[in-house]
Simulated scan of single mutants.
Amino acid sequence: MGVRDWIGSWPVYRQATGDDPLGRGAAAKSAGTARLTARVSTADQVVKSVCPYCAVGCGQDVYVQDGRVTQIEGDPDSPVSRGRLCPKGSASLQLTTGSAREYGVLYRRPHGTDWERLDLDTAMRMIADRVIAARRHGWQWEHDGKRVRRTLGIASLGGATLDNEENYLIKKLFTALGAVQIENQARV
């Protein structure tokens, strides 16, 4: 590489002699950066989502390639966050691809010290049995002489990122079970 080639590859020289006097485009681009491509350029689709961490509800663009999440970025179309994410939201890709992600059900028996793996059907049956038992144990037909038909044995506290439709369905489910303590964290 001669001196002339070396000077021509210098960003300040390209800035002073080229079409980019402010050094915001081609003048600042090196051969190395010209070879780079965006992580999201190979995605098959972009799915709109909401960050799961807090009640703010920042919009996210979830990039999917071959059925796998490859990148999560802030959604610039979101009126809530306008494309910005906090550190937790920026790291939410770990929720789908992180090495600490569990893909099975872990259960620790009462007074136990070790976790055991359960299949999903067994875990769902255990949950259903416990909901039925808590409902049956806490059921009240009457209270202070008034018919109430309710249970105080179960309650629901919805997550901060549930949307209106999910909250509506949860409210319907727990009301049908007879629960009266139904709340959403986003409103608390």
Rank of each mutant, 00 (worst) to 15 (best):
G158Y: 00
L93G: 05
I127A: 13
A26N: 07
A128D: 10
Y53T: 03
H143N: 12
G57Y: 07
L177Y: 09
T96F: 15
E73S: 12
M126K: 15
L152F: 12
D75W: 00
M124R: 15
D19P: 10
P79C: 01
A133C: 05
G104W: 11
T151I: 07
V80S: 04
T97H: 06
K172A: 14
V47T: 08
K48S: 15
C51K: 08
G145F: 08
Q94W: 10
V80A: 06
R4L: 14
E102G: 15
G145E: 01
Q60L: 09
R24P: 00
R82P: 00
I182P: 00
V148T: 05
W139E: 01
L118V: 02
G98S: 02
Q185R: 13
G74Y: 01
T97Y: 00
G8Q: 12
G74S: 02
E142T: 14
A123I: 02
D44E: 03
L85P: 07
S90P: 06
T151H: 08
R4A: 14
D19A: 14
V12H: 10
T122V: 10
G67D: 09
V131A: 04
I132S: 12
R68H: 08
Y53E: 05
R108S: 04
V12K: 11
G18F: 12
R35C: 10
I154T: 02
D144M: 11
G138F: 09
V64D: 00
K29P: 04
D121Q: 13
K146A: 10
T113C: 07
M1F: 06
K29R: 15
D119L: 05
L177S: 05
S90K: 14
D129T: 02
I127V: 15
R147D: 00
R130F: 10
W139G: 03
V80L: 07
Y107N: 06
L173D: 02
R109T: 11
A55R: 08
S30G: 11
R149M: 11
